[in-house]
């Protein structure tokens, strides 16, 4: 008997006489927390990420300020002009490692947890480009901010890869003391537009 058939047989035999579960109780919703965007900013900043809020017309300037002259890669579908940027065209990991920063869009922002989610469409690019450079500048429209995790899950397409980002990379592995800056970008700068 193949391992597959053997395991499925063991599962069925282990569960013989066990009734399937009844309907799942619904997960509770978060109560209305008022100003979503203010909450989003507070929670993102809580992870020691930087948040800049600006009007649509000032996006380029806000991004330029966040970059402060760093070398930068952008995804091919970015709807924004970043002077001096390299457009990702299957750059190798080594090439990405020599670039300081990346500018991407996001798919959704979660207020309750201060999380931004990328689903790696053309305005966000391949997963590697928002990972290897040390500074991630991420543009989020205020209209993209949703209250909590279930709202984000409902918006996302599981067929696409997704990356949920809550602050810069961090670890608590030494004495459970949180420090920022391990393998992912050590700096996260969110430009919140609108």
């Amino acid at each position: 008997m193949s391992a597959r058939d053997e395991i499925l047989r063991r599962v069925r035999s282990a569960l013989s006489g066990v009734s399937p579960a009844e309907d799942l109780p619904p997960a509770p919703r978060v109560p209305d927390r008022g100003d979503l965007v203010a909450l989003f900013v507070e929670r993102v900043e809580d992870y020691r990420a930087v948040v800049t809020r600006c009007a649509v017309a000032d996006r380029e300037a806000a991004v330029a300020e966040a970059l402060a002259g760093a070398s930068v890669v952008v995804p091919p579908g970015l709807d924004l002009d970043v002077p001096g940027s390299v457009v990702d065209d299957r750059l190798t990991a080594d090439e990405l490692d020599r670039i300081d920063a990346v500018v991407t869009r996001a798919r959704v922002g979660i207020a309750e947890t201060g999380t931004i989610v990328l689903d790696h469409q053309p305005d966000q690019g391949r997963r590697a480009i928002s990972l290897v450079p040390d500074l991630h500048v991420c543009i989020v429209d205020v209209s993209q901010v949703v209250p909590d995790i279930p709202d984000a899950i409902a918006l996302l397409d599981p067929a696409r890869p997704t990356t949920w980002i809550s602050g810069p990379s961090a670890t608590s592995d030494i004495e459970l003391d949180r420090v920022e800056g391990v393998h992912g970008p050590r700096k996260l700068h969110v430009v919140l537009v609108g």
Binding site: A128, T162, S166, G167, P168, S169, S172
Partner: peptide, 21 residues
């Protein structure tokens, strides 16, 4: 687990994504 509202990174993927990963 870590006592955070959300952990810094969560990745989801479904099989192979052409051109990515």
């Amino acid at each position: 687990s870590t006592g955070e509202r959300m952990n810094p990174y969560t990745s989801t993927w479904s099989g192979v994504t052409p051109g990515d990963g």
